[in-house]
Computed example of a mutant assay.
Amino acid sequence: MNLEASLLDLLACPSCHAPLRADDSANELVCTSETCGLAYPVRDDIPVLLIDEARRPS
């Protein structure tokens, strides 16, 4: 995943507005909130920040 740190600082979870962290091994951006935890896919280095596209935590 090739996201700039400054972009990651600006992005927030669309569901709960918590900060996101990069999970390079899964190619996802993961919500840092303990109650939400949604994982958003990154396709071709473009974050897909749609709640319908997010993966629920296991």
Rank of each mutant, 00 (worst) to 15 (best):
D52M: 10
R56H: 13
L10I: 10
L3E: 03
A5V: 13
C36Q: 09
T32F: 00
P41G: 06
L20S: 03
L11M: 15
C36G: 10
H17P: 00
S6Q: 13
D44H: 14
C13E: 08
Y40K: 03
E28R: 14
P14C: 09
L49H: 07
H17I: 06
L50T: 01
E28C: 10
D44K: 10
N27S: 14
L3F: 04
D44L: 02
A39W: 00
C13F: 13
A26T: 11
L3C: 05
V30D: 06
P19K: 13
E34W: 07
C16P: 09
D44S: 12
L3H: 03
R21H: 10
C13S: 06
P57S: 11
D45V: 01
C31V: 11
V48M: 12
Y40E: 03
N2D: 11
P14K: 08
L7R: 08
L49A: 05
A12L: 13
C13M: 11
I51C: 11
E53R: 14
N2K: 13
I51S: 06
P19Y: 03
C16E: 11
S58Y: 04
P57V: 12
D24T: 09
N2M: 02
S25E: 13
L11G: 07
A26I: 00
N27M: 05
E53K: 13
D9Y: 01
V42I: 15
V30I: 15
R21Q: 14
S58D: 13
S58A: 15
N2I: 00
E4I: 00
P14E: 04
E4R: 13
D52K: 10
L8H: 06
E4T: 09
G37L: 08
A26W: 00
T32S: 05
E4A: 12
C36R: 08
R43W: 01
L10P: 01
R21D: 12
I51D: 12
P14L: 09
C13L: 10
P57H: 07
Y40S: 04
L7W: 08
P47H: 11
C16D: 15
A5R: 14
L50D: 03
Y40N: 05
E4M: 02
L29R: 05
A54H: 10
L11W: 05
A26M: 03
M1R: 04
V42Y: 01
D23E: 11
D24C: 01
S33N: 15
H17G: 01
S33V: 05
L20H: 04
R21L: 05
D45R: 05
I51E: 14
P47C: 11
D23Y: 01
A54R: 07
C13I: 09
L8E: 06
A22S: 11
P57D: 07
A26G: 03
A39D: 04
L38D: 08
E53M: 13
L50A: 07
E28F: 00
A18W: 13
D9L: 12
H17L: 13
S25K: 10
L10E: 12
A26S: 12
V30H: 03
A5G: 01
I46M: 13
L20E: 02
A39S: 15
L11K: 07
L11I: 08
